[in-house]
Design a protein around this nucleic acid. Structure first.
Lengths: 137, 137
DNA sequence: ATAAATCCGACAATAATTGTCGGTTTTATT
DNA sequence: AATAAAACCGACAATTATTGTCGGATTTAT
């Protein structure tokens, strides 16, 4: 139960883009990776996921790169985490994809983990990228 | 960022013991493992951790086993999770043991992850084993 | 004495994460 | 038109963490 480095990297990249926000234009993987001291090849995969999830937009070719798809205020942390950790990232037993635990019916724990997940989600959805770069949340 | 099966197993074992609470006496790994359909050898390691953390007590020898060290009402979920996932399980960058990220000083994300951790902790500490078996929390 | 249990550490198997690489496509610039 | 810089993509390798197994030592009720 840890924050994966993937998610940490992803958030740092998003913060980078949010901070550069005013300077219109795109920022390349290379730039971000250098600034954040992350392997460019790995970062590319991470950023690609975020782009597919719709929170970043990209520009191919020379002078291309990435930028936020929306103002930082309208990108919630929940979106970042969901994009990188996957939906229902926490309570696997509930996700349709995984195997449902054989004990599920009589599992008193299940209800609890679900509530736990809801708490997390509601917190993550209450914080925006803007909140983070302005350090108020 | 998942609940490890270790923690799930640990919670289920704790719930088992909480439910058996009235029937005084000790419950063996074998019993718990069979009831919860967990490998006894693995469960032993998990339960041993919880015992060392002080939430379970043990009785060696024949007719021995484990029981809650306190009434279920006074065992909070935070205790279970901390015992099994380790302190500061979530925000690694803060734990003294791990390597501190080279970017830590200028890392706007850090403050956020810390707040996140605090949210989790306060929720986990607000729920007791009793709440869980009575399904009210 | 015996059997049932905790206790303990080493190790093996598996799975997940993290990271690398080579190539393809797109596009601004020269 | 050529070039260089960048996103895009999938396969794979390396590393780490989790999960699970085992054999023995110790304790204790019967």
């Amino acid at each position: 139960m840890k924050i994966s480095t993937k998610t940490k990297y992803g958030l740092r990249a998003a913060i980078y883009l949010a901070e550069k926000g005013k300077e219109q234009g795109f920022h390349s993987i290379k730039q971000i990776a250098k600034s954040e001291n992350i392997s460019p090849d790995y970062l590319e995969k991470i950023i690609s996921k975020m782009e597919k999830a719709g929170m970043l937009k990209s520009q191919k070719g020379a002078k291309g790169g990435y930028s936020l798809a929306r103002p930082a205020k309208r990108i919630k942390l929940g979106e970042v985490v969901n994009a990188l950790e996957g939906d229902n990232y926490f309570v696997q037993c509930l996700s349709g994809k995984g195997k449902v635990c054989a004990q599920c019916k009589k599992c008193a724990a299940q209800n609890f983990w679900q509530k736990f997940q809801e708490k997390l989600d509601s917190f993550l959805d209450s914080v925006s990228l803007e909140d983070i770069i302005k350090n108020k949340f």
